[in-house]
């Protein structure tokens, strides 16, 4: 008698949600009347880090602002799990943390009050505890009672970066996070990013400094610069 064994099922196969991935296709960025980049494609999956490289003005910040939803792509589409970001902007805002060039530190509020406010808006259950914990993780628990106006540039940056820990979000968009940070702080940031990726988080960051992100992928933005295309065309013309 023939007995067919049922197929082997791994216990987590049914439970595991489909891999969320964040992808952009044929993105074009127009600032004023200048094309910053065109036909840019990228894809990032859980646990991955994408490093944006390129000279000044190649559109690193513009791309990060686009990924955050602050800037509308002139052309192309952004999709999270194959669902267009444009169709569900409210959902998208809940899953990102954006750290830009400005530190958003209020001079009259203490560091803890500044951070607890963002933690509360991010939906943290106990904003003060989360905020203090995040400051400790960034090695600056002692600045908690210090008003924002007395903080140094590096301390403000650490306070701004601490927002990403004060409330959880799967996708971190970091625009030159290492600016004004000392070596020790960069090491701390590397550790925190590694931990976030190990937990299935995604990180997109731009940088000019050395920052160790094991197994990261690189996106060279100058490859998508329309100027490069123009030069190619000119070369062809000369050849003719």
């Amino acid at each position: 008698m023939c007995y067919s064994s049922p197929p082997i099922r791994l216990p987590f196969q049914d439970l595991a949600p489909p891999m969320p991935a964040f992808a952009g296709t044929e993105l074009t960025c127009l600032r004023g009347d200048r094309l910053v980049f065109t036909e840019l494609d990228f894809r990032i999956e859980p646990g991955e880090a994408l490093m944006l490289l390129g000279p000044n003005g190649s559109g690193k910040s513009s791309l990060l602002r686009m990924l955050a939803g602050l800037l509308k792509p002139f052309r192309g589409r952004l999709a999270w799990d194959d669902l267009e970001v444009r169709d569900e902007p409210d959902q998208h805002r809940r899953r990102i943390h954006y750290v830009g060039h400005l530190d958003a530190v209020k001079p009259v509020l203490s560091a803890l009050e500044n951070l607890a406010f963002w933690a509360r808006l991010g939906g943290a259950a106990d904003p003060n505890a989360h905020a203090l914990d995040a400051l400790t993780r960034f090695g600056v628990p002692h600045i908690a009672p210090v008003p924002g106006r007395y903080l140094s540039a590096g301390q403000k940056r650490r306070l701004n970066l601490a927002r990403i820990l004060a409330a959880p979000a799967p996708l971190w968009l970091l625009d030159e996070p290492t600016v004004a940070l000392d070596r020790a702080a960069v090491r701390l940031l590397e550790g925190i990013i590694a931990e976030h990726r190990a937990a299935g988080g995604m990180v997109v960051l731009s940088t000019h400094a050395d920052i160790a992100l094991p197994g990261h992928r690189v996106l060279q933005l100058d490859e998508f610069s329309p100027v490069a295309h123009d030069e190619d065309e000119e070369d062809e013309e000369h050849a003719l």
Partner: peptide
């Protein structure tokens, strides 16, 4: 607007 808070406020779950 000047210190970047408005940008971040526009990215929170609050419409």
């Amino acid at each position: 607007y000047e210190d970047g808070s408005l940008e971040l406020l526009s990215l929170t779950a609050l419409p």
